[in-house]
Design a protein around this nucleic acid. Structure first.
Lengths: 190, 190, 190, 190
DNA sequence: GATGAATGAGGATTCATTCAT
DNA sequence: CATGAATGAATCCTCATTCAT
């Protein structure tokens, strides 16, 4: 394995054990079995690790999700499986999720977050599109938007964490309308 | 204003500008216009600030929510208003939400989190109970649990953040079942 | 004595013993009897010490010069005394002279150099003006400019002797005589 | 050009730009277009560069001086030419002079300094001997010693001008005239 | 209570040098 | 000869915390 990957994986391990705040660069390199200076050949600082870690985490998440969700099953079964999968990932890596979040938040790497999560969102979205075409779900659903809502809902249920993006009034309006629709059905209002 | 409040408010301001990671005590006291040592008369350490900040933030959130939501209105209207309100709060204080979370997460203050958020959850829960009794929403809803789902959903929609809590298998099972039910209706599945 | 002066004087001592390059901040603070962090309350870096050291050195130089040169004496005697004085300073502080020079050169403190040396230059210049008015030296001399030439001449002469090693009494004596002769003619004294 | 020369010349260039203190080996090799390790095939350490640089600088100086000074001319003309030459070298390489000096001083290469400068001193000394024999300058002059005084005088005069900034043509002109007058009298020329 | 200069342990970072390719 | 990734000792610098005033 190349040194860069070794650093990232070791960092994940160490962060889980000691916590991001208390982890020293020296802990990471010790775990990776490399010299102190070598770290700086690949990352300028501890926080600059975060996007790389996030990427690995999303990869792991997708692995588990794809493993647990049977695309041949009915959409209702798939959703149950998706919930199981996300709860499972969160259970195993909840510290890392928190770390990534605070790590991304405390730096200026926020924009990389969306890029990193994109493949996961897309995969869900494709599933929704199929179900929509087959008339299994309501036709007013916007798959891309709803995919994110679903992931957010399940993750927040499993976790209760908060994240966002601002100053997009139109975007917010559509989003709000969509959430309203979503919620109306979820609660069986009216 | 007393010095303690001055410290908390200055800290919020400085955290928003510099980020929690990079903020020094000296930055906070400078912003508060007090001496370095004075900080320690009110807070034993830097991290002990977090719960106090969280409290202020929840207070601000509830102020806005209670101001925007008209309890005389129909539940569907109230939900629209709630969405508006939460989006509004998040728009204004999204960095702080992240800060609080990472601040609480990076220490052992996690347990205080629930306490701090409790009044908000309770208020939503009460609304659901009333609607449930009036037959406006489905009778299978568990108000306490659902209150958190709703807040989580809306906040994640406004933000896209992730947070959690693990090792509660039974708790997780119930939670998963509830989400499933929630989601089934939201998507009009079956 | 205040801490800032203590740092400067200790730095001079340590630099003389260990050399500027090999001196660590920790050596300086140890010599000054203060904590490591305290250094940074007064100086941002090792090199930023240089102007302060230069100032002290010029003060010391002027003390010795004013002490050795008798302004009541004839200009030729005064020049002899000036040569003695500068050689003396150089013998004692030759490492520091080198340090200051390289220290100033390697940083961006060059402009401070002139300011620091100004009082010395002025004092010599005043002496020349008086001698010129009294017809003791040639009338074509420009005092300000010549003051610098004289100091430059004597210092470089002294450096040539003391740069390598210090105990060269005989060598110094001959060099001083030669410089005196050189200077006497240059100024057309007597 | 062979790699050794390339290293020396690149080092001079980089030192001029970044300053000796801040220059890393990696900067030098980058400028020279060679690999990091290659440096050590030609120089055992960073400081061992200094004598080589000094040598190059003295060579350049002597080239310019020999080019500008016409040995057929009268000693007074030669001195004028010498002043011009040294000022010229200083204008172009004033940072390097400081570098060499501090570079040599900060190590144990001090003894090489004399060796490196020797040919320059000797050349001047020879000129003085000849002039002395021809009765063009005062008979009390000791050529070897005076050669160093002259160079020291002119260099310090030039430094005073060019140390701060280079484009001071008028200032230089006046300074050169003053130095010439000073020197003419010091040597009792004409 | 309030101050802010002083502390110093702790950790980040640098960079000359090596050596396997 | 040439390379440049890897090394890790050396040292800088930060900043939470203390305490004499």
């Amino acid at each position: 394995m190349d040194k860069k990957s070794k650093i990232v994986l070791s960092a994940i391990e160490v962060f889980r054990q000691i916590g991001i705040e208390k982890t020293k660069i020296s802990d990471i390199v010790k775990a990776a079995g490399i010299a102190q200076g070598t770290f700086y050949l690949y990352f300028p600082s501890k926080l600059s690790l975060m996007p790389a870690i996030a990427e690995v985490m999303v990869e792991k998440t997708m692995e588990i999700v794809k493993d647990q969700v049977d695309e041949q099953q009915d959409i209702s079964v798939q959703m149950k499986q998706l919930i199981d999968a996300i709860f499972k990932v969160n259970e195993e890596y909840h510290e890392i999720q928190a770390l990534i979040y605070s790590g991304l938040a405390s730096t200026e790497h926020l924009k990389e977050w969306e890029t990193v999560y994109a493949p996961f969102y897309n995969w869900i979205s494709e599933g929704l599109k199929k179900a929509k075409m087959e008339g299994k779900i309501r036709q007013t659903i916007q798959p891309d938007r709803t995919a994110k809502l679903i992931i957010g809902l399940i993750e927040s249920a499993a976790e209760q964490i908060y994240l966002y993006d601002v100053n997009k009034e139109d975007e917010a309006k559509i989003q709000k309308a969509e959430v309203y629709e979503f919620l109306k059905h979820a609660l069986s209002i009216g």
